[in-house]
Simulated scan of single mutants.
Amino acid sequence: MTIQEIQDNIVDEFSMFDDWMQRYEYMIELGKSLPIIDDQYKIDENLIKGCQSKVWVHAELEDDKLVFTADSDAIITKGIIAILVRAFSNQKPQDIINAETDFIDEIGLKEHLSPTRANGLVSMIKQLKLYAVAYQTQLN
């Protein structure tokens, strides 16, 4: 599946819920299904700067595609990074770099987060794209 198709699926899933309490519960469930980062990667250099809670992200290149694993010490934040990992993991670095993130606005996520969490969300997207740039450079 392309990044856009995955993002469209996420938008469809979120549209099934009537209110934000249900959407938060769904995000918490997504966080529980997140491919957990190996403890050896829970190090300071994998922490996302700009997040109030701790969020670790690790990326590896497998068959020219980036595979992300992540974890957070906060349940909502873990749900947010789970959505991003789902959208961008197992994709080519160049596709991640070029990907739009309009789906975040479409599900209304940014407007329903506290300002500090919204900043953290932006930092998470930026970090995933930075990994993609680093790996794309290696591929060239």
Rank of each mutant, 00 (worst) to 15 (best):
Q91N: 11
G79C: 13
V133N: 06
D64G: 00
Q40S: 13
K129V: 07
F103G: 08
L61P: 11
D12H: 13
T77V: 15
G120L: 15
Q22A: 14
W56P: 07
E29A: 14
Q22I: 07
S114K: 09
F103P: 05
I80N: 11
Q138N: 12
K110V: 07
D38H: 03
T116F: 06
K65A: 12
I96P: 08
I83C: 06
M1Q: 03
T77R: 01
D105G: 10
L113S: 06
D44V: 10
D63L: 09
D73E: 00
S114M: 06
R23C: 01
L47Q: 12
I37P: 09
Q4M: 13
I96S: 09
K42S: 12
S72H: 02
K78W: 04
G120M: 08
I75R: 15
F103C: 05
A87D: 02
K42V: 01
S123Y: 10
A59V: 00
R86A: 08
W20Q: 01
T137C: 00
Q40D: 12
F88N: 01
M16R: 06
E106R: 04
I81E: 03
R86C: 14
A74Y: 01
R117S: 10
F14A: 02
I81M: 11
L139A: 03
Q91M: 12
L84V: 08
F68W: 00
E45F: 02
V122L: 07
Q138P: 00
A74D: 09
E5K: 10
E5G: 02
N90P: 03
I80D: 00
T101K: 03
I76H: 11
E60N: 13
Y41D: 09
E60H: 09
D39R: 12
L121S: 02
Q94S: 15
P115Q: 04
Y41R: 07
K32C: 14
Y135W: 11
L130Y: 11
E25F: 12
D73S: 08
S89L: 11
E62Q: 14
R117I: 12
Y131E: 07
Q7Y: 05
Q94E: 15
I75Q: 11
S33E: 14
A74V: 08
T101A: 06
M21F: 07
T116S: 13
L113N: 13
Q22F: 05
T137F: 04
